[in-house]
Computed example of a mutant assay.
Amino acid sequence: MNSLFVSLQSKFSKTFILIVCFHVFFWVSYFFFPLLQFWGMEEYHFPIKKLLLDIVFKLIVIYSVFLIGLPYIFRHKLYKKKWLYLLGIAILIFSAYLNCLFIDSFFTCNTCFNMFCITRRGVETFYLIVFFTLFFLFERFTAQEKEIEAAKTAQYQSELKSLKAQIHPHFIFNTLNAIYSHAIVENLDSKFSNLIFQFSDILKYVVYEGQVKEVALSRELEIIESYITLQSFRHEEHVIVQYTSEITNNRLYIAPLLLITFIENAFKHTGNLTGEQHPITIEIREHSNVLHFYCKNPYASKNDDILSSIRETESSENGIGLENTKKRLDILYPEKHHLHITKEASFFSVRLQIHLL
């Protein structure tokens, strides 16, 4: 019951209620303003029913644009297309024509369905669309500002947490390099020495390069390959990794430590399974500056609530989990990415597409 109350409270926030009140006030004013102009004129009978029908029609047109058309246009960046404006003019004229036809079907009169009516309805609808478009842009700008501010706060807190966890990183790197050098001098297993080097490289990447805005995609893939090698060595009795990568443009950049979150989650849940030879499939491909990432892993049947539980999982040393990764994608690649997480039979899969340019 408490969770339901919290859900309703978050859905009907103060901002949401204010927006709804604004819309209601606007349309009530739009209805009563013409009435006030002719208030007290007994010889004039204002056509209230005609006005109500006109408002009903405008509500359908305006909110089709406001709730469906504008979000679709900005999501796919169609506002850059010239044909969209020609289509908008055609739809505006057609809607004005339908408006007059709609009213004329209820009221048989000479002034309802003519060129003057179509022009007047078209101009009224045009100004309403412009007004609600500006309102939509204001809402969008305000929401983006809040997201950016929240991202800055989250990044600040993450950096503080990371700084607290970084106890003399130079000492750690120097120690690992010393162990690596010792392994080479003593002719120890080359696989062991390479694992030390890869671990040192990952640690350095997380502490230093992971703090910048973007890194070369090729560098990100190097770290992912090193991470897969380390995890494969750790779970070599339980896991078989099928990893493929295909990058055609080596000049692309990407935000660091985005993809590794999903890979870490795959190893975590697969490594907890009993038995041997559990497959993990990881595919990273780039085509026409679009990065395609796919990761599939098995999971235990007892984890039926995996979709909700993994959101709270801390996926790396710097505390970036799946939920934070989703937020980073929304902020860093707004309307330029598509993330699809599914649970099918006994497998868990992640598909991610990012437009890097």
Rank of each mutant, 00 (worst) to 15 (best):
H235I: 00
A178H: 12
H269I: 07
E317R: 12
I55N: 07
Y97H: 06
C117W: 03
S10Y: 09
F347M: 15
E214L: 01
L87D: 10
F138Y: 15
H292I: 08
F113Y: 14
L332M: 12
P71T: 09
E237Y: 04
K77F: 07
K58P: 02
V241F: 04
S245P: 00
L273E: 07
Y299E: 09
F22W: 08
T119I: 10
F113Q: 08
F26T: 08
L51N: 14
G88W: 07
S245A: 06
L52C: 13
Y299D: 04
A96F: 01
Q211E: 03
I202R: 00
I202F: 00
K146G: 04
K49H: 04
H45F: 08
F293M: 02
I118N: 01
H269C: 06
Q157G: 01
L36M: 10
K146Y: 08
A345L: 14
I179M: 05
I172P: 00
G210W: 00
P256S: 04
A300V: 13
T270Q: 04
L67P: 01
V130P: 04
T229W: 00
F94C: 11
Y97P: 02
H170E: 08
S95T: 06
D305L: 13
F197V: 01
F66T: 04
K50I: 05
K81P: 06
F22C: 08
S105Y: 14
K49N: 11
P279D: 05
E335K: 11
S245Q: 13
E42M: 11
Y63H: 12
Y85D: 10
N249W: 00
E225H: 00
L259Y: 06
T175Q: 04
T244W: 00
T248I: 01
H45E: 08
K50G: 14
V20L: 12
K164H: 04
T313D: 14
I284T: 13
E139Y: 05
S7W: 13
E276L: 09
S7T: 10
E314Y: 11
T153C: 05
Y299P: 05
Y72Q: 06
H45T: 06
I306D: 09
Q157I: 03
S308F: 09
T111A: 07
F5H: 10
I129G: 10
F107D: 11
E237T: 02
P71G: 10
F173I: 06
D201S: 09
N324D: 12
F22P: 06
F135C: 03
V65E: 03
V56H: 06
L87S: 14
I247W: 05
F46E: 10
Y205A: 00
